[in-house]
Design a protein around this nucleic acid. Structure first.
Lengths: 343, 343
DNA sequence: GTACCTTATTTTAACGTTAAAATTAAGCTG
DNA sequence: CAGCTTAATTTTAACGTTAAAATAAGGTAC
């Protein structure tokens, strides 16, 4: 590990004190123009780079931001992570990334580590509904926001999709297509999963349709989980003609199972997902879904978080953004070619 | 920002010196058992957490690892990132994530930032074939490895797929299916793209098939790029009956275009990709591809990097792992149902 | 000519930790 | 019991930076 050039070394070579060099680096107006030029020259020549660690220790503010997501194999979170990382880069911040794997204990641990590194702010998509991690962050006084999921800790900025209305819209779409026996593949316990469940229930109620617990099975936000849930629903003996999946990923698993049984989509069973992932529009997939642009949401969240960090504006109102969802109809719910990709 | 408990404060409350507390924290054997217990108790009670920044400044070693990838919307890199982040977490490291967006200048900038933060090591999937970033990292004496791509800088650990053989296998598969007019959608300029191109060429040559520059078009590793390249190939007037795409993502774009033109896969045009992404196995997609488990590769790369950091073993041989690729045949190249998913 | 600004720069101290040196206490040896 | 060894602890200094205080030089007012 090669030792890097320090401020003191540059100072010596330029024949000034280290503080003057520091002043030049930080654009303090006290420095005489002539001196500034001299020092700048030596800075450039030496290839000097600020030691972010030392700076962070002294000023007690890093330009590190923590990002905690449940998973990254779900391409929605990958998109979100990319949006966050790039916006952070643009504004001079570096992202410390952590994956909680939907485990509350892991989540606490990574949040601790992030705080240990003196993060200036944290963006979290909480896995633990109780909000222990959020409480911890708040206790440590670190600016933060919740994203795509909400924990019981209800005292920070929240950015989420309008999951309830989205789920209702999806279910209504199936009802409008004439389905009366509609299965639901739910997510794991989380605010988002809960809202989507409630939206589904509300739509059924409003339409006066009966609901059956046998038609509601929980997946675990994976393709495999969707497949298993689909199996269970199909084997329930309730003969569903449509299934609403709380995420596209799980819908893919359901499609696997339907294909394996030789059931046609949508003639035998219609399918609609949630998230409208990139690949749902592939011609061979053509999965109807609920769209809400998570990257845009993430971008807003990180931008606002950095604003808060830099302005340290504790009086700004707590943000609560709930972006609208829109229905994307594709071949998995309607047969007429004309309606395909009516996004 | 709430001030955190410091070592000195714990020392005061326990009635010992700060150094003793430090010794307890670092499990130094000099501490008397009785004292250790006393201090441990006060540590726990105060909720003390090590200040990673201060520690890093003093010891000149952080437990931060930089990860630089070209993109994250490509789910292959998302998988890789997840693998790296989780293995790093497991070993007590935190990942600073950066996206270069395939821009050499951005890449240099993020690498600089990562080094500024005193990263203990860096894992990079270089975008710049010249390897300026790799040279910079090496110059700064930071342990690092290249992954999934190789730059001209040929003096570090490299982990990549056997792209050449993979591409040859893919092309041979098409040839064995009876195709003689085979298009190629290439990647952008990179070692990986180059190797895949060479594998394609070699297969054609070996089979004694003519090659045409009109059948070789470069995409940019996006679905949109694949679509445009496919258009160009189909409009060339060379009537290809099969297309080999240097990545699954681009293959998806090609499939979009084929569907738009009403061409059947594989009857009119067969398609094979590279990377075997998760969703290529969806029943409606069924894209034949070349598989090589990037997450496994990434996991090996990060594990080895951490080993190097911790053992600081400069005498260990430079690693060069080139993992084999395997052919996955699906419905996009063969019609018989029996061969589907013969992974 | 002394007192008092203003401007540019330097000196000192501090952030929280660890390494190294110094101190203290206790035990042993001949 | 002087002299030495060992064990446990404390003191000092340092990592590279920035904040705050101190200094120096030059100008202005009366």
């Amino acid at each position: 590990m090669k030792r890097r050039v320090t401020l003191a070394e540059v100072a010596k070579s330029a024949g000034v004190s280290h503080q003057t060099v520091s002043n030049v680096l930080n654009n303090r107006s006290v420095v005489r123009e002539e001196t500034r030029k001299l020092v700048s020259h030596h800075l450039k020549q030496s290839g000097y780079r600020r030691n972010a660690t030392a700076r962070s220790l002294k000023t007690n503010q890093s330009n590190l931001i923590g990002l905690v997501v449940p998973s990254m194999t779900n391409s929605m979170y990958a998109e979100v992570a990319q949006a966050v990382v790039r916006e952070a880069e643009r504004r001079g911040y570096t992202v410390m990334m952590a994956v909680s794997n939907r485990d509350a204990e892991v989540e606490m641990s990574v949040v601790h580590t992030i705080i240990d590194h003196n993060a200036a702010g944290i963006l979290i998509s909480p896995s633990d509904v109780e909000g222990k991690a959020s409480k911890l962050i708040k206790d440590q006084g670190v600016p933060f926001a919740e994203m795509l999921n909400r924990s019981a800790f209800d005292m920070c900025d929240v950015y989420e999709a309008d999951n309830h209305n989205g789920a209702r819209t999806a279910t209504n779409h199936l009802i409008e297509c004439g389905h009366t026996n509609i299965g639901f593949i739910a997510g794991v316990f989380s605010s988002t999963a809960q809202s989507r469940y409630e939206g589904y229930i509300e739509a059924l109620k409003t339409a006066g349709l009966p609901m059956s617990s046998e038609l509601i099975v929980s997946g675990n936000y994976t393709r495999e989980g969707g497949l298993l849930a689909c199996q269970q629903i199909l084997d329930s003996g309730r003969h569903p003609t449509a299934i609403f999946c709380a995420s596209d990923i799980m819908a893919y698993g359901a499609m696997d199972e339907l294909a394996a049984r030789g059931l046609r989509i949508p003639q035998d069973v219609a399918i609609i997902g949630f998230d409208d992932m990139e690949l749902s529009s592939l011609p061979g997939v053509s999965l109807s879904s609920i769209s809400f642009q998570p990257a845009v949401l993430a971008c807003r969240a990180i931008a606002q978080l950095i604003d808060r960090i830099e302005l340290s504006d504790p009086f700004a109102d707590r943000a609560y953004e709930r972006v609208p969802c829109s229905l994307v109809v594709r071949a998995s719910t309607v047969t007429t070619q004309t309606h395909r990709d009516a996004s």
